[in-house]
Design a binder for these strands. Structure first.
Lengths: 132, 132
DNA sequence: ACAGCTATTTAGAACCATTATAAAGTAGAG
DNA sequence: CTCTACTTTATAATGGTTCTAAATAGCTGT
């Protein structure tokens, strides 16, 4: 199994549910953005077994903690997750609420001149809002 | 009254509630960040009259629509608003969930090389996450 | 100042994403 | 195979936000 070791190596038991969710999230050519609600629908579509909503939340949070997913900082009534965990940025189309990846090469280097004592920068995320 | 014209000029009736909220939001030397919950507490503290929670929501959204407030794009269970509506960015301290302003001069110019057909850039917002 | 119209406020209910709970099930170590 | 800790599950609870419908208050024209 493709994801058995991935899960075991990160201290997560490779349960049937987690393996199935792995396939939906990571067995794709392209990375993508999703909300829990969208993931739930995709699971219902692609998998015969039922996975409880609570498990979907648990799994997504576990994967996020392990660095396999990340949240996209955006104001919305639901949380957006990204299967692309490399440093990159987003366009946010205000008209239809869609997110579009901005590759790192699409954005010039970002220079943060100010320092905060005792803290270090974990990530820099740019959101570019688009209008008509 | 200081905010009477501001409200009237933007087509908002200057009601007692709106004027009182204006004083709390805009009658300060420094701009600040807040959630609805925090604003509600501040109103209870500083004002004798009661303002209903629904009115606080209505007013904040009305002010946002008029450009007197803006939302800060960040994943949180509640929406963060900013009384500083000029283009600027934020540090987000992951430890305590606090936001710190980054003046425009603290961040070098940001160059977005990619274009989306038929769309134009409305805003560019940078969130710098801090850890220990 | 008054009437009439429309915007606004209000309390409370409704909504909905997310989290908590506690019982049943399952993986892995020995 | 057994024991234990981890996981899943259905369901309830939580909490921020929005909706509703009735009461109130600005505003315009007279």
């Amino acid at each position: 199994m493709k994801y058995l070791d991935k899960l075991r190596n990160s201290g997560l038991r490779p349960t049937k549910q987690r393996l199935q969710i792995c396939e939906i999230l990571f067995d794709t050519e392209k990375t993508f953005h999703f909300t829990i609600n969208e993931l739930d629908k995709k699971i219902k579509d692609k998998i015969d077994d039922k996975i409880s909503l609570a498990t979907i939340y648990n799994t997504v949070h576990a994967f996020e903690k392990k660095g396999y997913l990340k949240q996209i900082p955006i104001n919305s009534n639901q949380i957006y997750f990204d299967t692309n965990v490399t440093g990159h940025h987003h366009f946010y189309d205000l008209k239809d609420g869609k997110l579009i990846d901005l590759e790192n090469s699409d954005v010039g280097p970002i220079n943060i001149k100010r320092k905060i004592n005792g803290k270090k920068i974990k990530s820099i995320e740019v959101l570019v809002k688009l209008e008509e």
